[in-house]
Amino acid sequence: MTAHFEPERPATRADDLPWARWGAPRPLPQAALDLLRSAFTLPEQGAPAVPAERVRPAESRLPETARSAFAAALGAEHVHTGDAARLARAGGQSTPDLLRRRAGDASAAPDAVLLPGDAGEVAAVLRVAG
């Protein structure tokens, strides 16, 4: 006999990753900074990242037929081809990933971001894509 369990969703959502960072800036302890400056020659001005608002991904190459098929499968509100959604998924969190994004390189951005609601919609996306 299986007891029925009513599915639950979390009350609090995890934060989204910001552009080209893990989170809001945190200062290094002074002792760590001193150690760093004694070990390495670092530029006075640091190596600031290109501001997020100056970074644009290349034009989306998603064909219109695919976009409407995805919209039919997921609902148009779950198919995103705007810059912000695409930039937010432009690669992971390795140091090379971050260095490229900090330099303003958005070449790892996808042509579209799809937000399926369940396993059936995931299967539908794969059917359209394949």
Binding site: F5, P7, E8, R9, P10, S60, R61, L62, P63, A66, F70, H78, R86, R89, P110, D111, A112, V113, L114, L115, P116, G117, D118, A119, V122, V125, A129
Partner: peptide, 17 residues
């Protein structure tokens, strides 16, 4: 010709315990 990201964030339930 193109690439899409399949973001699974809406699959966000505990369906059984």
């Amino acid at each position: 010709g193109s690439v899409v990201t399949l973001d699974l964030r809406r699959l966000d339930r505990m369906t059984d315990l």
